[in-house]
Every structure is written in C-alpha cells, then in structure tokens.
Simulated scan of single mutants.
Amino acid sequence: MSSLAELVDFSKTSLWASLAAIVFNPTAWNIVARHEYRNKTITRIFGGNARNGCYFLAVAIFSAGILRDSLYERALKDQPRQAILPEPLNVIVPALLFIVGQTFVVTSTWALGITGTFLGDYFGILMDHRVEGFPFNVLRHPMYVGSTMCFAAGALWYERPAGLLVTVFVYIVYLIALRFEGPFTDMIYSTRATKSSESKKEL
C-alpha cells in the first residue's frame, strides 16, 4: 500500500489553486446572489433589467466554472500517477461516470433554463412551478451530483489518486453550499406565496 504522501503531492501550488477555485465558486455566487436579492445591485447596473443582470451573472458563473475545471486538470497532471482500476475498467468507468455526470448537468440546465439554473430567483425571476421531470425525478440535486461525478471521472481517467481526494472535497463543499442555498431559495418562494395569498384576500 502506498502512503498518502506518495499519492498526493501537497507541495504543488496547482493543487491548492484548484481547491481554492472549488471553494470560491459556490461561496462567491451565494454571497453575490444574496446581495442582489437584498439590494438589486446588478439589476441597477443593467438599468433595472433583472433578466440582463441574471444573464451577466450566468456568464460569470459559467466562465468561473471553466477556469475551475482547467485548474483541476492542471492539478491532476502535476500529481503522482498511480493505477487505480485494472484494464479495461480504467477507461470504461471514468468514461461512464463522465457521460452520466454530464447528462445530469446538461439536462438540469435544460429543464431549469438559464434563469432557473443561474440564480434567477434571487433576481426576482421565479419559476411558476417546481421542475419534477428528469433528472429531478431521479436526484434532488442532479447538477451538483453530476459535477461531482465528473471530478471523479477526471481522477480515474488520469489515474491520479489525489483527484479522488479532491472529489471528496468537492462533495463536502457542495453539501455545505446546499445548506445555505436550499433554505434561502425556499424562503424566496415562500415569501412570494405569502404575498400572493395576501393579494387574493384583499380582492
């Protein structure tokens, strides 16, 4: 058995840069989105057009995601290589993980739309009803699960045990993010339901 020190090179700057990007993305977007919900800063920058503001944030989130993935790939290549799965599973398993993971991510985005995916509810762009079709009828948080699967696929494909450690880190970060995102989003929709109910009573 190889020791952790032989499998993971903690001295590589690329590893820490990758971990920092993984933490930064959901943290930053939660902070920015909550600030937008309370102060409408981005909406005001776009002349009061909430939809354009949301599209701007979508581009920023998507771009940061590409950077995060690039940093992860660089980190993997800088880490020690060690066979994890026997042939031909070392090709089949990561390929399947990536395909299934990307399917969850892409179909989630398709089902939610741009504003539904990229925090439109914080801009006041709310969906009329909860999305219950695929992949949400399979997983509660398919986008986060799919993303985690892709991280694992990369680790197995490049045969870098350090990547599996990063994948566990990603999963933990997502779990923490969901503890903040879920209740806040529920509050937004609950507030709308309350206001709608009050409006109906007044009529």
Rank of each mutant, 00 (worst) to 15 (best):
H129I: 15
G53I: 06
Q79E: 09
L76E: 03
K201C: 15
P80W: 15
V168L: 10
I45H: 02
F98G: 02
V138Y: 08
L85D: 07
L71Q: 03
R68L: 06
L71A: 00
S3Q: 11
L67H: 07
R74W: 14
D69G: 07
T148Y: 01
V168S: 14
L178S: 03
N39K: 13
L126E: 10
V138W: 11
A58H: 01
D69I: 15
M143I: 15
S147Q: 15
D128S: 14
D69C: 13
I125G: 02
F169M: 12
P88S: 00
G163K: 02
W157R: 14
A17Y: 12
E132Y: 03
L126A: 01
N39C: 11
L112S: 03
E198T: 10
A64V: 11
K200S: 08
R44L: 09
G124Y: 12
G101H: 03
A64W: 11
V106A: 12
L139V: 13
F46G: 01
C150H: 08
L89I: 08
N49C: 07
L175P: 00
E202K: 01
A75L: 01
I84H: 05
N25H: 12
S147K: 11
I114N: 03
T27L: 15
E132H: 08
F123E: 03
R38S: 11
V138Q: 02
T107N: 05
C150I: 14
R81M: 08
E202L: 13
T115W: 03
L4E: 05
L112H: 02
H129L: 06
I114W: 08
V138K: 07
D9T: 13
R44A: 04
A152N: 01
T43I: 04
N25G: 06
I45F: 07
P86C: 05
S108K: 00
I45W: 14
F62P: 01
L57K: 11
V105Q: 09
L126V: 13
V8K: 02
P94L: 04
I176N: 00
L96I: 07
F46S: 09
A20L: 12
T115P: 08
I31Q: 03
R51V: 12
E181K: 06
I61R: 02
M187S: 10
T194K: 14
W16E: 04
V168K: 07
R160K: 14
C150R: 00
T27Q: 00
P80L: 15
I125C: 10
V173A: 01
F10G: 07
I99N: 03
W157I: 03
